[in-house]
Amino acid sequence: MSAAPGRGHAVRWEAVRFAYDGVEALRGVSLDVPAGTTLAILGPNGAGKTTLTRLLIGLLRPRAGRVSVGDWDVAAKRPDELAARVGYVFQHADQQLFERTVRRDVAFGPQRLGLGDGGVERALGELGLLGGAESHPYDLPAPARKLVALAGVLAMEPGVLVLDEPTAGLDRAGRDRVIAALRRRSVDGVTVVVVSHDLAFVAEVAERIVVLREGVVVADAPAGRLLGDAAALAPLGLEPPPAAAVGAALGLPGAPIRVEDCAAALGGVRWRGTGA
């Protein structure tokens, strides 16, 4: 079963409040994310980023407000039911592996949902895991285990994909594979929500950025505009990603934030320079 464009779901938080033992983690957050958007949530530790995403899969229940995924009210569903729509990749997802081969572990989620093997093979291929598909996950190095866990969620072909620090601990090649896989999901119409401290990665995948601080939204802007604007990032405690910094320093046209856009703009500069 291949993914058809438009299979994503809109995600909506409406005036959501949440508290841990009386300490407010979210103080009235409202966000409307149309289907097919790739959203990055940024903010310092303790800002409420992970709390916000955990509400999507029903692992936490809001104290006030409403969370919905497409036409589902999250409050009415258990996490294992929501898994049919929302794929959630945890920060330490490598700890969830337990099957004797990579392929079997990746197939665990799809089997629970009654899906076929198509998603399993696609996810293994995308993340470069086909060569080691018959290995034991624990015979692979730690970064590869993290990719196995990600593959296990991609294979469930969810309409909404939530990733918590997906690039932490990954090597360059793994990171590039994750970026490519997320871009492909975005083209398919999947809604992607990424929580990350890795701004260079965020610049590569995100269309929209929301910054949280102390449980409230302090910025909500298109990725290109926010990440290219050092003056806007500074009060949020953020620095522009390297490609954006290079682009700004050289005054490149189009204010690129992605490495390849930056390279293309640089090429253009040289071209015009030699042509003059």
């Binding site: 337990f98 099957e99 004797r100 034991h136 996950p137 624990y138 015979d139």
Partner: peptide
């Protein structure tokens, strides 16, 4: 024990 990877 059956699930233990060879290296372990």
């Amino acid at each position: 024990l059956r699930s233990l990877p060879r290296q372990m």
